[in-house]
């Protein structure tokens, strides 16, 4: 089924069940935050986990997506689904330009270039008139789905967010298990060899980059609608660091890892928010522990115990 193994299919159904049932038990706004970040992390994982590209500038696509969605709903009065798609379009087109520049270098340089390009986007957002500078775009209405259904109630917009997340998740899974995805993995394992087999690796990398940034933009746009605000926080490089942390903690190159990572990191931020900068310290410590001892992440480690690819 969709390239899922049996265990993965069971895990996926379990995840769908949780996504459907949790809002009746837990605070839906918190869950929506988790789902937006989970999609963002899955999109990031598509690059690091399957192409081996560490982008340290994914906040640029997430943040710009959220700006455009917020602007579209607030100023143009478009319906919610159009706003979210515009967020994706923003992420994708920005990804096309920045990715085209960044794939000229490999490895660590790629990470530094994406970081620097994202910093350029950040400074642009700081000065550009439409972002509202330090204030951001505030009081964004949630809009109406297809122009009809009001999304003002948390539970109504929850289903939209859940649908966006699950659709994005399945899309990524489909991409990874397509022939295209196999080539991506070949590039990750040995790029010169993939080249010698006749694949234009730069094209593959760029397409994967654009797919990833499109989904990051969609995640950002969805988050902007849920919270009714788009700010500089979303384009700041610490957001890029956070998505790296989520993916690393969950497990690089695992299907469910980024989702688990997003859940843990978001929950941690919620509970530690009152302790101020200790959030940063905790995140840093988790980063170091993951790199030193848990390079497979939570899902990768647990999957390893049962010899399952999750």
């Amino acid at each position: 089924m969709l390239g899922f193994s049996r265990t993965q299919a069971i895990a996926f159904l379990l995840m769908v069940a949780l996504v459907v049932l949790c809002p009746f038990v837990l605070y839906p706004v918190f869950l929506m935050k988790v789902l937006c970040f989970a999609l963002f992390a899955c999109a990031f994982n598509l690059l690091i986990g399957y192409v081996g590209l560490l982008s340290f500038g994914h906040a640029a696509f997430f943040g710009m997506g959220s700006y455009l969605s917020a602007w579209a709903v607030k100023q143009w009065g478009v319906s919610a689904e159009i706003a979210i798609l515009l967020g994706g379009l923003m992420g994708g087109s920005l990804g096309l330009v920045l990715g085209w520049l960044a794939i000229r270098r490999q490895g660590l340089y790629f990470a530094m270039i994406t970081l620097a390009l994202a910093q350029m986007v950040y400074f642009f957002c700081l000065q550009a008139p439409f972002t509202g500078g330090e204030d951001g775009i505030q009081q964004v209405p949630r809009g109406r789905l297809f122009g009809i259904i009001s999304l003002d109630k948390d539970m109504s917009i929850y289903w939209v967010v859940a649908f966006v997340f699950l659709a994005g998740f399945l899309l990524i899974h489909r991409i990874v298990h397509s022939p295209f995805g196999q080539v991506l993995k070949a590039i990750r394992e040995n790029e010169p060899r993939a080249t010698s087999l006749g694949y234009r690796t730069d094209d593959y990398k760029l397409i994967a980059f654009v797919l990833s940034t499109t989904l990051a933009g969609i995640a950002g746009g969805t988050k902007a609608l849920v919270f009714g605000i788009a700010t500089l926080t979303d384009v700041h490089y610490s957001m890029s660091g956070e998505v790296v942390l989520m993916t690393l903690l969950g497990g690089l190159g695992t299907i469910f890892g980024p989702v688990v990572g997003a859940l843990v990191v978001t929950a941690m931020e919620n509970y530690l928010a009152q302790f101020g900068a200790w959030v940063t310290v905790t995140q840093g410590v988790i980063f170091m522990l993951c790199v030193l001892f848990f390079r497979k992440g939570l899902v990768g480690t647990i999957g390893g115990w049962f010899k399952l690819a999750l």
């Binding site: 660091g241 310290v281 995140q283 988790i286 980063f287 790199v291």
Partner: peptide, 11 residues
């Protein structure tokens, strides 16, 4: 890179 990034956050 990831380790030293975490270190930077801690410091």
């Amino acid at each position: 890179l990831l380790l030293t990034f975490g270190l930077a956050l801690v410091v």
